[in-house]
């Protein structure tokens, strides 16, 4: 074992892992949690939904795509920003990247007008795509200003006249 990973609710009291593990609280939570999950599964199997396998594929798909695509991609971006972006600019650049990604995610369907209906101009009445571009521009402008502030701050700290 390379890391002292957290035991789940203190899996295995005392030294050395036990085969069963888990505290009474964990087992109680497991029973209650799985019972609640069963309500959802039963509801998915009822005729109200009718497409339970498709839903299961979506839920599983989100977990798999997150763990094997999105998270690795984010790690690659983190490594790239560590290599390519000077240390002084790294934090604002990373925050701006994360915030841009977030805004694109939550506004994507509206920005691409996927739900637009020709007979109903009250759906998506504002140009979300244009607003998104404006917001992204503002975020990167702020990040640039922050980088400038940090660069100036770092220079001043180094200069012998600092504090005069």
């Amino acid at each position: 074992m390379t890391t002292p990973a957290e035991p789940p609710g203190g899996a295995g009291p005392g030294p050395g892992p036990t085969v069963l593990g888990g505290t009474p609280l964990f087992w109680a939570g497991l029973a209650v949690g799985w019972a609640i999950m069963a309500v959802g599964i039963r509801s998915a199997l009822s005729e109200r939904l009718a497409r339970a396998p498709a839903l299961a594929r979506f839920v599983l798909g989100f977990a798999v795509v997150h763990d094997f695509v999105v998270l690795p991609a984010a790690v690659v971006l983190a490594v790239l920003t560590a290599r390519l972006v000077p240390a002084v600019a790294r934090v604002p650049v990373r925050l701006a990247l994360a915030l841009s990604w977030l805004l694109v995610l939550i506004s994507w369907p509206a920005a691409r007008r996927y739900g637009a209906r020709p007979d109903n101009p009250t759906v998506l009445p504002v140009d979300v795509g244009r607003n998104l571009v404006i917001l992204l521009a503002a975020i990167w402008l702020l990040a640039a200003l922050d980088v400038a502030r940090r660069v100036v701050g770092a220079r001043r700290d180094r200069s012998p006249a600092a504090g005069v």
Binding site: G33, I36, M37, V39, G40, A44, L49, R51, L55
Partner: peptide, 15 residues
């Protein structure tokens, strides 16, 4: 119904 079923499953897993 999909959002509803997924809500129960998610909250159960959260517990």
């Amino acid at each position: 119904p999909a959002h509803y079923a997924a809500a129960w499953v998610t909250v159960g897993a959260l517990v």
